[in-house]
């Protein structure tokens, strides 16, 4: 187990470096000069521009900039935004909000998705199963911006249950609706994956054995069926956590949540290379950690998988 984790961590290093490299060059090789853009429509004073570029470390070759960036990154220095704020502060402000939002969405899709999928899988071919299939299909096909506006219109403007936009981004109650919108697409996938997996495993030999030896229904479903059916769902959920955090751009925009998506969207528009790559570094770390946890969960769910 320990050796497996160590080996996986070692394998993650090149992946991490590669992703950071890709995103570094994607953000820095863009046409247009973000430094000159600081002066707006006026042409920048060459001396001031040169001094500014020197201060930001933008006056050296792109290769040298890359080496400097990676060096700084290993010392925990994410660099500065063009306006002079530390990127780590910008991240520190936005990340807790998005972590809350993403975790709420994650719990929502996990509990509701697995619940619906389990019921539908057990009643395969019955009315509940068919309704689930149709509803999840509809949920998958409605794009997130549209779903966001529908929810905002119905629950905030028509029913007045909540305010249309989030006033306090750290308030869990206000984050509920954005979280439901954010998690609904994945919820549909989780429900469908669970349903297929349950419907397949329900006919297996170990289920017949469990029922034949007289185990109570709760135990048959809880310990035998669910545990064996969760592997594809766990695989999906693992990659989904990172996607929820990075993919909240639209949801955060509609509901005015001051999280990672919002900050990233502004940073991309302003060509803020350091901020964009800083956020991506964090998101990639989340993604890698989640995929490690998924691998470890495989062994918990299926004892046949052993990591010596």
């Amino acid at each position: 187990m320990g050796r497996f984790v160590a080996r996986r961590l070692l394998q993650m290093i090149p992946v991490f470096l590669g992703t950071v490299t890709i995103i570094f060059f994607m953000t820095r090789m863009l046409p247009g000069d973000p430094a000159a853009a600081m002066w707006g429509d006026k042409a920048a004073d060459p001396a001031q521009l040169a001094a500014f570029k020197h201060r930001m470390g933008l006056d050296v070759s792109i290769g040298q900039q890359y080496l400097n960036y990676m060096g700084d990154l290993f010392r925990g220095n994410f660099g500065e935004t063009l306006a002079g704020r530390k990127v780590i502060d910008v991240i520190g402000e936005a990340l807790p909000v998005t972590v809350r939002l993403a975790l709420l969405a994650f719990v929502f899709e996990l509990v509701v998705g697995v619940g619906i999928g389990l019921l539908a899988g057990l009643r395969r071919g019955k009315a509940f199963d068919k309704v689930t299939l149709v509803l999840t299909l509809l949920l998958i096909s409605i794009p997130v911006p549209v779903l966001g506006f529908i929810f905002q219109n119905v629950f905030a403007i028509q029913l007045k249950w909540i305010t249309p936009t989030v006033q306090d981004s750290m308030n869990l109650g206000q984050l509920m609706l954005p979280a439901i919108v954010l998690g609904s697409l994945s919820l549909a996938y989780v429900a469908r994956l669970t349903r297929t997996s349950i419907a397949e495993n329900v006919k297996s030999d170990y289920m017949r054995t469990a029922i034949a030896k007289g185990l109570p229904r709760r135990k048959v479903i809880g310990t035998h069926l669910l545990r064996n059916s969760m592997i594809p769902v766990v695989t999906f959920l693992g990659t989904d956590l990172g996607a929820l955090m990075g993919g909240a751009i639209v949801t955060e925009g509609i509901f005015n949540v001051k999280g990672v998506g919002n900050a990233l969207y502004h940073a991309i528009n302003l060509n803020e290379g350091a901020t964009v790559s800083g956020f991506v570094v964090v998101l990639v770390l989340v993604y890698l950690a989640a995929s490690l946890i998924v691998d470890l969960l495989y062994a918990v769910l299926d004892p046949r998988i052993r990591y010596a």
Partner: peptide, 17 residues
Amino acid sequence: MFFGIPLLLGALVVLNA
């Protein structure tokens, strides 16, 4: 390496160019 970059986010960065 590419899989770690969320599709929407990466597309935003590329299209911004």
